[in-house]
Simulated assay, not measured.
Amino acid sequence: MGNDLGVVGVIERLWRYPVKSTGGERLHSVDVDERGLAGDRLYAVRDAEGRFGSGKNTRRFRRMDGLLHLGSRYPRGTPGPEPGPPELLDPHGNPVADPTAYLRSHLGRDDVELAREGAVSHFDQLPLSVLTTATLDWIRREVPGVAVDERRFRPNILVRTPPGTPPFVEDEWIGHEAAVGDTLRIEFLRSSERCVMTNQAQRDLPHSPLILRTIARAHDNRLDALARIVAPGTAAVGDRLVIG
């Protein structure tokens, strides 16, 4: 575990992505269990080969350009640990009546459907991604004139760090456990290797190849801290992140 680091920041924003690779929804608080944020990436766009829509091509994922221009959210006030099914939002933020029909038209493919997670996980790696304002502010300084905010990196938690915190401070958390709020405990295991998805346009954020190029040059294409859930609980805006 190493030395305790203590309070490293507070939760500034919480993000959940009901449909993988679409724009997410900001939350004030959310339950977190072993799988991650309740309902996070619980649905995905699946093709006839069983691969899920993403910003890249791998064994499990297929690149489907256009998903980032869409959004997703769960209906407000839905009770229970699973808040679905989600609403799919068009590029103007309006819910669509038939998500699968809309996706087929939007993507120009007749073999896709909106699918709930089954035996194969929708997560790229680990269930929780945490990013700091220190790292985000550094990227902004490195690429002036480019619209940069956390939506490009799709974290679940954006942590507000104190002034003077160095960029990529998330590296120091790897191998440590952390407390979030009263009951939630997580363990940071590694960081994400970034792909072209960080450059892609989404709604009001234009395409920019400078984003990924900058991360590659400065930090070997890695950004954030990925965690597993040690003990379930609730995360809320304003909660302290305490390492150790």
Rank of each mutant, 00 (worst) to 15 (best):
V120F: 11
Q200I: 01
E25A: 15
T135S: 13
E177A: 09
S54T: 03
Q200F: 11
I157A: 04
L205K: 03
R73G: 07
L128P: 05
P163M: 02
R140T: 00
R240H: 08
A119K: 14
R63S: 06
A134C: 00
D182T: 11
D124T: 10
H176Q: 06
R240V: 03
L14H: 04
S105F: 12
T183S: 13
R228P: 06
H176E: 03
P79E: 15
L212W: 01
R13Q: 13
P86R: 10
V237Y: 04
G71E: 10
R160F: 01
P167C: 01
P155D: 02
E187H: 14
E193M: 12
G118V: 06
E113H: 11
S105I: 13
V146G: 01
T183M: 04
N94E: 15
L205H: 09
R222A: 06
R152L: 02
G238P: 02
L226D: 05
G39C: 12
R41F: 05
V242C: 04
P167L: 00
D47F: 07
G164H: 03
P75E: 14
R190W: 11
Q202L: 11
N3G: 13
T161C: 05
L212H: 03
P79A: 15
H28W: 14
L189A: 10
R194P: 00
T100K: 07
S129D: 06
A101I: 08
A48D: 14
V146L: 01
E150K: 01
P99G: 06
D171G: 05
G244K: 03
E49S: 15
V30M: 13
V230F: 02
H106R: 13
D4K: 09
A236C: 08
L5M: 13
T78S: 15
P18K: 12
K56T: 10
F153S: 00
T135P: 00
R154W: 07
R194T: 00
D111C: 09
E187I: 04
A227K: 05
L5A: 04
W15I: 04
L103A: 10
H106V: 08
L70D: 07
I139W: 02
R35K: 15
R76K: 14
T135N: 00
L136Y: 00
V169Q: 05
D224F: 01
A235H: 05
H69S: 15
I139A: 02
G9V: 01
G24V: 07
R35T: 12
F188Q: 04
I186L: 12
S191F: 02
A179S: 13
S105E: 15
R152A: 03
R51C: 08
P206K: 03
A44I: 07
P85A: 09
S208Y: 00
G93T: 09
E87D: 14
D98V: 06
E12C: 01
P18T: 10
A44L: 09
L241E: 02
T198E: 01
V159M: 03
D220I: 00
R217I: 05
K20A: 07
V148I: 13
D98N: 14
V45C: 08
S191N: 08
T234E: 15
D204Y: 11
A38K: 12
H122P: 06
H92P: 03
V196A: 12
P99D: 06
R140D: 00
E150G: 04
S129H: 14
L70H: 09
T214H: 02
R51M: 08
